[in-house]
Each structure stands twice: as structure tokens, then as C-alpha cells.
Write a protein that binds this DNA or RNA. Structure first.
Lengths: 265, 265
DNA sequence: CGAAGTGTTGAAGGGTTTCAAGCATAGTGG
DNA sequence: CCACTATGCTTGAAACCCTTCAACACTTCG
């Protein structure tokens, strides 16, 4: 069955279709691959570090995180993986990787045989372009995180992160314009932001008390988008979110993007 | 003329040959591209941000840096580009980028027409694999930098950076095992490490006074490799430097890598 | 009920920044 | 040859952001 008819694949297809080269033949080639879809429980490390994988993994639903653990026991999360994200694009080209991937809440993950995917990429230019574009966007996000970590205060990093996550979720139809599920614990946020969980707590309270956000029971609501964007120095064009996609059976979306966050692009 | 006969291209070929799939046909395809080689003066921004480039740029000699400037005027360098590095791999797939690239000293840069390169990539699987591998390695380096910025002290970040740069230079035959040219000013190091130049100065003096390194007149010498590696928590496998390559007419190199830094892999 | 995980708060300490000043070197033009 | 300037390196003192350590509240779950 074509992936276009399977709602679970919608976020991934939205991402692929952001490439103008991705056409029906590419979709058919993808649909022909032997894919497995399986649930992954929260707090499960489903890709271990330094083992060359036989499969490529795509997050279809839920949140996952790439992570690296240092000698002293501290952790750093260099990437958060949301619906539509491929977990191990780099493993296609490298023998080993030094990041694991852990599910942060209950996820749905699709697995594709590595070699079959590589074969499809070799055979289909549009698919290649689309995946290449996804890798490039991932790179752009990583670059932005580097900038935030290097030059941002705790408040700036946190505000920026919230803006980015909401924009990414909204772009694939996994969130409304101003709210989303938010499964991260404060400690996990700390591992993303290069902070301690204590300081994340205090910084969050700052944003809350100023009326920028509401965050409780795993749900984030942005109350003052403009102010939050300003607090984080967020400009969303690095996410390379194209014009609104037709997401499955979703209604047409006339809005300019989440929070108008991308309006300045 | 085949690039294999042009010494200036040696570092780039070393990188490409780290992919097992890169063969003679791929080399020939590359050599057939209309390439221009030109010098770039120090402190010249030769790739501007947010302009879609018509060309891909390869650093053949010298040092360059990707950079991003924030509203408040501070700068962050998310990547240093050394001999053999491609400056704008992501621009192949994206319409615009938000990083500029500046030459840190006098560089030699090769420019390739974007579309011609894309065409060659489409036509030659081995070339595609080799470039894909380079992009993946670049990603791995960016991930490591994120970890350093997020969880490392100034001393750890600095020591790690020095280890990495020497390893990368040595891998392409651009440095001996324990010393290299080092054109970065302390302010530029600060922009890489997410610190102030003042603190870079003090941290450098720490490493110097403990006998780990010597750094003056744009030349870095590592005096105590083991200690420097330990200070930075450096383990070089993320650089994915393969077995010693035959670098042009260079002699066989029986050593295990710079400083034995990769010995533990 | 006890245990584990998460969120919250307070106080003390430290790593880094900020601001300021001084020194050295190289290049420039009179 | 000598101001003069620009750039980069060095040093000191104060201020600040964030960490560390500790304790406690709340919820969930076996």
C-alpha cells in the first residue's frame, strides 16, 4: 500500500515533499521498501551507540533524542527527533556512530533495511534529493543549536528551543499553532540546553511568571509568541519549512506558520 | 589533467578516498568538472550568508571558518574548515544558508559549478558515497562540538579543540604528528568555543604553564599529548579517520595517528 | 505504605564575563 | 627615523550567571 494512504506516514511525507524533486515515482519506490512499524516504549534506547545498524529508523510519532554520555556521567542531547525525522541518516555513510537514540515518550518508529534504502536512493534521484534536503536541514538545526549553546544565556536557549520545537511540530501537522504536547522533563531539557535541571526550573519559572508560556502536565502553550520569540532571538528560516503542505486529510491552513514565527522569512 | 596529479588537490582526495566506494571512475568524473582554483586573502568573507551559491567551494589550503553573527554583535563559529573540507555541502540541497564563510589566513580555494557537481553526483555512485561520507563526518564533528559546548569547561573545550584540529590536519598530510600552523587569534578561538577572548587567554596560559602545549607565532606544538587528550576528554574516533592514506608522494606513515590520539580506536 | 521520579526552593560557591588598563608588535606615513 | 595607529596579547578587580548541595513537596505506582 502506498505510504500516502497510511496516515502514520504523513509527517515523514510532509518532510520529503518539501523537496520539489520528490515525485510519485519516488513515493512508489519508498512504498515498495519492506518497512516495519512498531511502538517503542518511553525511556527505551532503541538505537545503541557504536553499533553499525542494519536498519534506518524514522520517528512517525512521539519524541526521541540523540544522546551522548560523557565519562563523568553527564549527558548531552545534540538533537531531538520528532515526527517525520530520520534518526540515523549519518549511519547510512559511516561504519559506527557514537550517539544513541532514546524514546522520550511512547513512540511509533518505522524501520527500513539500510541496504534497501540505499538502493532506492541510488535508483531514484528525487528521493535522493529529498533525503539530502532533510539531512541538510538537520545540519542547519545542529548549527543553530551550536550558536545557542555558545552565545545564548539560559533564558535565550530555553525560549529558542520552545519556539523551534513548536514550529517543527506544527510544520508536520503534529501541533496547533500555539500549543503542543511536551514530554520533556526538566532534566532532559537541561541535557539539551547544556544546563542543570535546577537552573532550567528557575528559568522556566521566569518565562511563566512573565506570561510567555504555560507548561504543565506535558503540555506547552505559548501565551505570548512575540515575546517568546524575542526572548530567544528566534528566526525560523533555518528550519527551512516550506509553504504549507497538504497534510493527509487536514484542512487547508491559511495561517503563516506557528505563532507567526516564520512570518518574517 | 587528473586531480591525482595536482598536489593541491591531495587533501581533498585523501578525504574522498576514505570512502571505499570511491574509485577511478569517480576520480575521472571529478577531474572532468570545470574547476577554478584561486587564492583568498586572510579575513575575506568568500561565501556570504543567505545567498544561494552557484558554486561549491573546497578549501585546498589554509583555514576558513563558518560563522554566524547575532543581533547583539557576538559571533559564533559552528565549523572550522581545513584543507580538504567542502565549505557548502548543505547549499547543494537548500535554497539559502545563514552562515557565511571567512578565510582565517591566506587560503587556496577550489570552486566547482553547483549544477555540474550535482550532475556528477547523480551519475557516479562512488562519488556520491564519498561526498555523503564527508557530510556525515562533518555532522559528527558538529555533534561533538555541541557536546563540548554544552558540557565542557573552558579548559576541556580548548584542549579538545586543539586535539581535533591537529588530528584533522595530520590526517590530510597538512601537519606533523605533534605540531601545526595555528592561525587562529584568541578572539577567533573564543568564537569557536563560546567564550570570551579574555578567558581563552587565561585558559591557554593554564595549558602552557602545565607544559601541555606551546603556542606562539601562529604555531602550535603539543608537548604532552596524553595530558592534552585527557584534559579535553578527546577520543578521535568521531573524526572517522581511516587507515593511513597514501598522500600523493608522501612516504609510508607507520605511525598510528597524530599523538597516538587515535590509538584507542 | 514505601519507593522512585519529578518539580521546587534556598544558600553558598565557583567559573566566566565584564570593564579597564597596559604592553608588544607590525605597519604607515610624515 | 620617528610618531602614530591598529591589532593582538596580557593582567587585575568586580560582578554575575550558573552550578552545587541540600532539603522538601507532590505524584505515581507496585
Amino acid at each position: 500500500m502506498s505510504w500516502a494512504q497510511r496516515p502514520a506516514f504523513a509527517p515523514f511525507l510532509v518532510r520529503l515533499r518539501q523537496s520539489a524533486d520528490f515525485g510519485p515515482a519516488d513515493l512508489a519506490a519508498l512504498s515498495a521498501l519492506p518497512v516495519e512499524v512498531r511502538p517503542v516504549e518511553a525511556n527505551t534506547t532503541f538505537i545503541r551507540e557504536s553499533r553499525r545498524g542494519e536498519h534506518a529508523h524514522v520517528v512517525l510519532d512521539g519524541w526521541a533524542a540523540r544522546f551522548k554520555i560523557l565519562e563523568n556521567g553527564s549527558r548531552q542531547v545534540p538533537a531531538l527527533l520528532l515526527a517525520g525525522d530520520v534518526c540515523d541518516l549519518d549511519q547510512l555513510h559511516l561504519d559506527h556512530v557514537d550517539c544513541g537514540v532514546i524514546a522520550l515518550n511512547r513512540c511509533t518508529v518505522a524501520t527500513l533495511p539500510r541496504d534497501a534504502l540505499l538502493g532506492a536512493l541510488d535508483a531514484h534521484r528525487g528521493l535522493r534529493r529529498a533525503i539530502g534536503r532533510m539531512a541538510a536541514v538537520e545540519n542547519a538545526i545542529a548549527t543553530q543549536w551550536t550558536v545557542c549553546l555558545g552565545r545564548g544565556s539560559a533564558r535565550e536557549r530555553l525560549a529558542h528551543l520552545l519556539c523551534e520545537l513548536l514550529a517543527r511540530l506544527h510544520a508536520v501537522g503534529a501541533a496547533s499553532a500555539d500549543a503542543c504536547t511536551f514530554p520533556l522533563t526538566q532534566e532532559q531539557m537541561a541535557d539539551v540546553l547544556g544546563l542543570t535541571s535546577v537552573h532550567v526550573n528557575r528559568t522556566l519559572q521566569g518565562l511563566r511568571s512573565e506570561g510567555l508560556i504555560a507548561l504543565r502536565d506535558q503540555r506547552l502553550t505559548v501565551l505570548d509568541p512575540r515575546a517568546l520569540r524575542r526572548a530567544g532571538g528566534f528566526e525560523g528560516h533555518y528550519l527551512h519549512i516550506g509553504p504549507p503542505q497538504d497534510i493527509g486529510a487536514a484542512r487547508a491552513r491559511p495561517d503563516a506558520g506557528p505563532l507567526g514565527l516564520l512570518a518574517e522569512a
